[in-house]
Structures are given as structure tokens and as C-alpha cells.
Write a protein that binds this DNA or RNA. Structure first.
Length: 282
DNA sequence: AGCGGGACCTGTGGGC
DNA sequence: TGCCCACAGGTCCCGC
């Protein structure tokens, strides 16, 4: 599910609820929801959330221990993968069918609430890490630049070889945060064929792609993400960018721009939709 | 290098 | 209505 715009929306909607809150307790209902390299979640107790941010598709809680004498800093990192959801609950409303982990938090002004991590497909992961564990986690270590930070030159340099352009966009070490929806939407906006060889792009084409990535992701964030089925923000609201899809999930339908029938193919095992007229091979 | 296929899982929607 | 199959927003791993 959640790609960059969805995780960004979750982070923004969740931040005001959790900032300054302290972890009181946790309940890990499914052991496999914990990344094997994680510190035990018991280390959470007493730690305070100093910031909530996003890196690629990861949600990152920055934590500090309460005592000023020996401050420790940890990060609680959550990857929602396909169907993960994070949301808050005021009281003890009981677990959902797919609840994998529950965190009990204490507000700075007093009073407790719970943070739920639900995940139907159980692909999602939770990782509690110090800076060393985080830095040596391959997925974190190898993550490429944020799409809003990368320069055109750096993007040009990262697009190499004969691999399909779409595969490069999905490669988190090239750019962090783009998934199947936004790869297809971005390529349409840039008028580039998904099978173009990554290394064959001219500088103006990379410039074009760079613009498309930023504008598609910004539009999607403005619409609070895309809700295909599972996705909701931290307050249970759906996104609305699915109403603006030009190609994703529209194989066989007419291009909204030129009317041609959109083609659906598979690239690297992922369904890929594009317009053969707006996105010519050359 | 990169692709196809499988694995990890559960749910949903379409076809019959 | 019900059953079976294909497919789903992501990543990792293996073999070719």
C-alpha cells in the first residue's frame, strides 16, 4: 500500500497526537511483526517521542529517554509494506482481527491512549534501533535520496544500464519512496515509456522525469494519498488521489489525455500500465 | 546485470 | 450462492 505520499500523510496526521508522549507499555501480538535485528520492545518503556518523520516509505519515531543524566536516543521504525496501518485509539477498544502490535502511550498532559499497528498481510515490520543498528540495516543503509531532495544531476547519474526505467524507479536505492502506483503515474506525466533503458535518457528527459516525480508526489500528498483498499491515515481517513490516476489500474481503458487504449504489461513482476501514444518507445 | 519465479500472507473480486 | 483462481500498494532470495 503505502508509498511516499501515504506514509507522509500518516506521519503528518499522527504527529500532533504523539509528539511528547511517553511509551508506557506494548503488546506484540505477532512475533514476526518485529524485524529480527530489532532491540527488544521492552526498551521502549519510559521513552519519549521527540519527533515523527518519514524516510522513503518508512515511518520513523525519534525517541529519547527521560533522564537528562544519560540521554539515550532510539528510533522506532515502521514499514507498512502492503497492508499495514497505524492509528490511535483513545480507550481500550479491543484488538482488531489484524492487530499485530499495540503501544500504550501517556500524553504530556496526562491520560493514556493506544497506538495500533494492524496489518492484514503481515508483511509489515517494526524495528526498534539505536543508531548503530539502524545504520547497519541494509535497507536503511542502501536507501537512495528523497525524491524532493535529489538533484537532476544525481538522478541522471543514478539511472544507468539497460534495465527498464520503471525498475529503476521502484529500486529504493535509486530513489526512496516510489512504489508501483507512483512509478506508473510519474512515467505517464513524464511521457516516458516504462521499458525505456534507464541509461538511455537524455539530460532533458531526466529533467522532465525529475519534474514529473515532484509534481506527481506533491499532488498525491495534497490529496492525502491514494486509497485502493486498505490505506487510511492515522485518523482513519481515506486519501483521494485514486480519483486522479491517469494510468494506474486503468489497463484497457482510454487514456484521459489522448483517448488511446492504455496498455497493461508486466515489468519485474509488477503490473504496469502506460499509454502507447503519450509514452512512445523512443 | 537483470529477469522470472517463488516466498512471505490474507483478502477481495471476477468468472463460471 | 459458492468455489476457484488471479491478483494486490513491497521486499528478499535463488537460479538462470
Amino acid at each position: 500500500m503505502p508509498e511516499l505520499p501515504e506514509v507522509e500523510t500518516v506521519a503528518r496526521s499522527l504527529a500532533p497526537h504523539v509528539h511528547g508522549c511517553r511509551f508506557v507499555d506494548f503488546d506484540l501480538l505477532r512475533q514476526s511483526a518485529l524485524q529480527p535485528s530489532s532491540l527488544p520492545l521492552s526498551r521502549l518503556r519510559g521513552m519519549k517521542i521527540s519527533a515523527l518523520s518519514r524516510r522513503g516509505k518508512l515511518l520513523v519515531f525519534s525517541l529519547r529517554s527521560g533522564d537528562a543524566a544519560e540521554q539515550t536516543a532510539l528510533s522506532l521504525v515502521i514499514h507498512l509494506r502492503m497492508t499495514g496501518r497505524i492509528f490511535t485509539r483513545e480507550a481500550n477498544e479491543g484488538l482488531g482481527k489484524h492487530t499485530r502490535c499495540v503501544f500504550s502511550l501517556e500524553k504530556p498532559v496526562g491520560g493514556n491512549f493506544q497506538l495500533f499497528f494492524d496489518d492484514a498481510r503481515t508483511f509489515g515490520k517494526v524495528l526498534l534501533a539505536d543508531s548503530q543498528i539502524l545504520a547497519s540495516w541494509p535497507f536503511w543503509r542502501d536507501m537512495g535520496p528523497e525524491p524532493f531532495d535529489v538533484t537532476i544531476e544525481a538522478l541522471h547519474k543514478a539511472l544507468t544500464g539497460r534495465r527498464p526505467l520503471k525498475s529503476s524507479l521502484l529500486d529504493q536505492s535509486v530513489l526512496a519512496g516510489i512504489g508501483n502506483i507512483y512509478a506508473d503515474e510519474t512515467l505517464f506525466a513524464a511521457r516516458l515509456h516504462p521499458l525505456r533503458q534507464s541509461g538511455s535518457l537524455t539530460f532533458p528527459e531526466v529533467q522532465n522525469l525529475h519534474d514529473a516525480i515532484r509534481s506527481v508526489l506533491m499532488d498525491a500528498i495534497a490529496q492525502k494519498g491514494s486509497s485502493i483498499r486498505d490505506y487510511r491515515d492515522a485518523e482513519g481517513r481515506q486519501g483521494s488521489f485514486q480519483n486522479f490516476f491517469m494510468v494506474y489500474g486503468r489497463g484497457g481503458k482510454n487514456c484521459k489525455k489522448c483517448g488511446a487504449a492504455l496498455e497493461k504489461i508486466r515489468i519485474g513482476g509488477r503490473a504496469t500500465v502506460f499509454c502507447p501514444v503519450c509514452q512512445p518507445v523512443l
